[in-house]
Amino acid sequence: MAQNKQLQTLKLFYHPFNAGEDYKGRRFDTILGWSDDELEKTHDYIQWLFPLAEESRAVKNSPVVDVDTIRWFRQSGTVPNMILALKRMLWFYGFEIRWSEDTTEVEVEVEPKIKIEPKEAFTNGTGRKIFHRWLKPHDHNHARITRILRSLRLFGFYAEALAVNQAFQTYAQTYPGVAKAVVNKASRDIWEQVATYALSAWGHNGLKEFDLEDGFTFTQ
C-alpha cells in the first residue's frame, strides 16, 4: 500500500498538469530552478527526476517504479517534463541537447554548451570550468549520470540515452598530453552498458516488452 501511494505521488510530481510534490514537498519546477550549487549539494532529488526500478542505496523513501508505472510514463503526457529534467542536468554537467528532424527520423545531439575539442576538455581552462562537476577520476556525479542513463532507457528515451552516453564518453577519455584517463574505466563501462544493453539484461522481470518497443530483437 505504501509503495502504491509513493508511485501515485511520483506521477503527480512528474505530470506537467498536476504540479504535485515529492516526499519533501518540493515541486518539479522548483527543483529545476535550483542553482548549480544547490543541485550539487542536495542528494535526494535525482531519484525523483530520474526514478529507477530498484531502491536507491543512498537515499531512503526514493521512488521505485514497477512495470505498470514504466508503462504509464511511456504512454502518458510526461514526456515534456522528462526532457526538461534531462536538459537541466545536462546543462549542470556542461552540455546541451538538440533534436534535428529530417524526413525519416529524429536525430539527437549532445554537445558542450561552450565549443571545445575533446582533447582540450581536461587541459583547457574552459573545459575544466564547464565539466568540473564530473570530469574527475572518481565523483558521486558518476553515479548520478548512471541513474540518468538508466532512467532514460526505462522510460523510452533510447536515442537520448545513446547520445548522452556518447557525449560523456567522448570528453572522459584519455587524450595526448593527458597522463591518465580522466574518468575511471568502471564508470565509463557502466555508462556504456546501461545506455546500450537491453533492459531485460539488467535482471528485472517484465522489462522485455519495453525492449521490443525500443527495437531490440531476441532469438529463441
Rank of each mutant, 00 (worst) to 15 (best):
R128F: 05
E101C: 07
F168K: 12
F210N: 02
Q173Y: 07
E38G: 01
W202I: 13
F95R: 01
E54Y: 14
Y45F: 10
A201W: 10
D22L: 08
I130A: 08
I190G: 12
A53I: 05
P63C: 01
V183W: 08
L39V: 09
T219W: 07
Q220R: 13
T9Y: 05
D29L: 04
I116Q: 06
K5G: 03
G206Y: 11
Q8I: 06
G20A: 04
V65Y: 06
Q75T: 13
P16G: 12
E160T: 02
G203C: 08
L52V: 02
K115A: 15
E38P: 02
N81F: 02
G33E: 04
D44E: 09
W48V: 00
I145L: 12
R27C: 03
W48A: 01
T78F: 00
D211H: 06
E120A: 15
F122I: 14
K113L: 15
S151T: 08
R133A: 06
R88Y: 06
K60I: 06
L39P: 09
T69L: 10
G127T: 05
F28L: 02
R26A: 09
K60T: 07
D214V: 04
P80W: 01
V65E: 04
K136H: 06
T78K: 02
A179R: 10
F17H: 10
L152T: 04
L135V: 10
I31G: 02
A167S: 04
T219Q: 13
T170E: 01
W134H: 01
V164R: 00
I114F: 14
K60G: 02
F73I: 06
K136I: 03
T170I: 01
V108M: 05
F92A: 03
A172V: 00
G177I: 13
I46K: 08
D139R: 04
R74P: 03
Q193A: 15
K41P: 01
F95P: 00
S62N: 00
K185D: 14
A121E: 05
T103N: 15
R153H: 04
G94I: 09
N124C: 14
K180T: 11
L84N: 10
H15E: 09
P80D: 03
